[in-house]
Design a protein around this nucleic acid. Structure first.
Lengths: 268, 268
DNA sequence: CTTGACTCTCCCCCCAGGGGAGGCCTTGAG
DNA sequence: CTCAAGGCCTCCCCTGGGGGGAGAGTCAAG
């Protein structure tokens, strides 16, 4: 019989840990003195403690370990939980690697440019889009298309966020296949030429651009380079979300905020 | 000006998160209504929120982000913190990979054997060892060597844990270079042929063996295979810690507990 | 005017323990 | 025998980044 401190030293575990495992029922002491409350452990309990530590080392949480320690656990079930754990661990490795790539990329970019590349991959929610699609002479003309949408919706779109979607895959100097509209929380009845459709929840790589629209092409380039380098692939047409515009709209205002988004999917 | 809910939707952040960032001073709202306590955010705060999210995505904790957001942060310092973050992240990737290897190994071993290989790498504390070293005819004879130690120390070693160290690198049928002794918390004056020395704190791969000593050779094999496969290398002589022996000592008792340890160092 | 959607603060919860206070218990030394 | 040191007990608060919910106040549209 060992006192809790002796027992803790045998397997390099703290006393706190043993008391916690007692409380959770993972490793009740062999005997508890009813008078003093002192816990006493027997050497026959070392294998159980060791097993707990091994399972913890494999990444199981204490609740799962409790289940794994129950008597009569069929081997098949242990195998199943380990296989599950393996999948989780693979995902964890992949996630940590991706984060490392992002850190390395940020550091490399910082060598060239004193500003951080502030790009985020986020999973949006599904939203509704009331929009009109047309071929327009150039990217700047999307403003008029947006104006059409606001004119058609009137007060119903008073506070909605304007957005543009570029359906062309590559950069075009003319005849741009553009869609302009507003984001909504719920579907809306609209009349031609407007359409209302649901934008599915999708992962997008987003860059928040500040200032003049003239700098947008460079931002698109940096964003698409980042996507490639960070382990993603472009999976849909680019979007521009106009988070802050002034009226009347100018091409050049330092306070403008435009979020450029590319739907993406993982390559690694 | 946006209410907190609208603002939260702009960057896919929960309201709870915004309130926390306010409390931590990371992102105080542009205006707080003194009457109602309502928080109001301006679109000019989106870049700051975005920066917070990017830094969080790179793995910084909120305290570090607070420091990084302070005005007049020199680029060199940002670079330094990123480089530090890179090192941490590399370590995190390595640790997750090692854990994945252990899980995969456990699963593979389970295919062959219905019992888990319960091996742990642990970092011990430095301890003192009072021991005698000699060449003995075979592994079983270590019992007599241990007996010498206990006889020489008498009551001073009454409750100490016996241990053996095998100084030969490979398995030997005869003329084993063995050391037997007891583990102590503090140095002890001993007389020849005993020696007292400090065992440094070192990482050991440990396997807790249950039962007969006759099964020890197989345990050594499994342990050394595990060490190789898990990304470690043997870095010193093996030790046997006798956690539970009965008296008189027999070679075969199901309740015996023996921890086999190899000092190890990482290969990856 | 009402109703439903928002927002506020405050409190408890997660996980695997760590740190410490205040008080009882054991053990070895004098 | 007593005394002091060190073990051990329970209880409470803390970690990080929020999540969940209670109870109450606020806002905007019909």
């Amino acid at each position: 019989m060992f006192a809790i401190g002796e027992f803790s030293r045998l397997e390099q575990v703290t006393v706190k840990t043993l008391r916690l495992y007692d409380e959770l029922g993972l490793l009740p002491p062999a005997r508890v003195d009813a008078q003093t409350g002192y816990r006493h452990y027997s050497s026959a309990q070392l294998p159980r403690l060791n097993r707990i530590l091994v399972l913890k080392d494999l990444g199981f949480d204490l609740a799962a370990i409790g289940r794994l320690l129950e008597r009569d656990l069929p081997v098949a079930e242990l195998r199943g939980m380990l296989a599950l754990r393996q999948e989780e661990q693979r995902a964890a490795v992949a996630a940590e690697k991706l984060r490392l790539r992002r850190v390395e990329l940020a550091l490399a970019e910082l060598e060239r440019n004193p500003e951080l590349m502030e790009i985020l991959v986020k999973t949006g929610k599904a939203q509704w889009l009331a929009s009109v699609r047309a071929t327009i002479p150039n990217y700047q003309s999307v403003g008029q298309l947006c104006g059409q949408v606001f004119a058609a919706l009137g007060a119903k779109a008073f506070k909605a966020t304007p957005i543009a979607i570029w359906h062309d895959v590559e950069y075009r100097e003319s005849e741009v296949d553009a869609e302009a509209g507003v984001l909504l929380d719920s579907p809306l009845e609209v009349s031609a030429p407007l359409l209302c459709r649901e934008l599915p929840a999708v992962e997008v790589a987003a860059y928040l651009h500040r200032g003049s629209y003239q700098a947008l092409p460079g931002a698109y380039q940096r964003l698409s380079r980042w996507i490639e380098a960070s382990g993603w692939r472009i999976a849909g047409p680019a979007r521009e979300v106009y988070l802050h515009v002034g009226y009347p709209v100018r091409q050049d205002d330092e306070t403008y905020l435009t979020e450029i988004q590319f739907p993406v999917e993982r390559t690694v």
